[in-house]
Computed example of a mutant assay.
Amino acid sequence: MVSVQRKSLADQAADLLLERIASGEWPVGGKLPGETTLAPQLGVGRSTVREAIRQLAGRGVLQTRQGAGVFVAAADASENWGLLLRRADIVAVIEGRIAIETEAAALAAERRTSSDIRAMHEALARRITPGQTTAQYVDADSVVHRAIVASAHNAVLLEFFDGFTPRMREAMIDMLDLPSNATTCDAGVPGEDHEVHEEIVRAIADADPARAAALTRAHLTALKAAQSSPPPTERQE
């Protein structure tokens, strides 16, 4: 049986943007219109446009310049990178995240600003919003991790993180939707996992690079172990 894989709205929006870039509508070095202009053109919301831009930034097509906008960095996507992530075993993706986010957490503890700390706390609060769907919870969790990486003020680390996001999102939604994991996210209910995220942010706010890095590594290593564990055996009827 051939399985049909449906693309997310963000994936579709990224494809449409890529087509327009490849057609020469926006040349290399050119600036893209703002989200409010692109969203109705693509038939999606502004948050979907942002995610599509993050995907293309992670693939080397776009570059976001703070305070200036989004610019075309290459006319074609780095297909090798995109295909690698789509085909990669999720454990390999988590190992990549361990390398990136551990260093990012340490740098964030050294470089974070007051606005960075505020953004991390706001993201933490959204992560435990009651009544979230699994997808909303995963997206909120990703915002927390991205806020931490952004606080490192290293554009390369941030682009790598954005490149991992679509593949990781898909895997996390699938994992949390398993019946055996039905209470894992509990849609916005605080738990031990959320406390770990709070501790990481606290270490960053306290300017403690070693602790921030150690907590991040431990958290992602535990996630890797959970993904590596064999699925529960289904009872044969």
Rank of each mutant, 00 (worst) to 15 (best):
A123G: 01
R167I: 06
E95C: 11
A155V: 13
D76L: 10
M172F: 09
H121G: 04
F164Q: 11
G67L: 11
L158W: 02
E159Q: 15
A106F: 14
A207H: 15
L178C: 11
H121L: 02
G131I: 00
R169A: 01
R65E: 14
E170C: 10
E103Q: 08
A135R: 04
A108D: 08
I173Q: 09
A207G: 10
A155L: 12
S114R: 06
E159C: 11
A119Q: 08
E198Q: 00
A182N: 09
R86Q: 11
T184I: 04
P130K: 01
L124C: 03
A74G: 12
Q132A: 03
R97N: 07
D116Q: 02
R65W: 14
G69R: 15
Y137R: 01
T183P: 04
A135V: 03
H197W: 00
P190F: 00
L124F: 02
E192N: 10
E103S: 07
A123E: 01
S115W: 05
A155R: 13
R169E: 03
I94W: 10
D206L: 04
A205T: 06
V72L: 08
W81P: 01
S114G: 02
Q66S: 10
I200V: 06
M175F: 12
A147R: 05
V156P: 08
T102M: 06
T184D: 07
W81Q: 14
L157T: 09
A205D: 06
F71S: 10
P130S: 00
T113A: 01
E199M: 06
V189E: 12
Q132W: 03
R167T: 12
L124T: 04
A104Y: 10
A119M: 07
I148Y: 08
I173T: 09
A135W: 00
T184Y: 07
E170T: 14
F164C: 12
T183R: 07
V196C: 01
A125Q: 06
G163R: 13
A147P: 07
E103Y: 05
I173N: 04
I100V: 15
E110W: 08
S114M: 05
A119W: 05
M120N: 02
I148F: 07
I204Q: 03
E199D: 10
R202G: 00
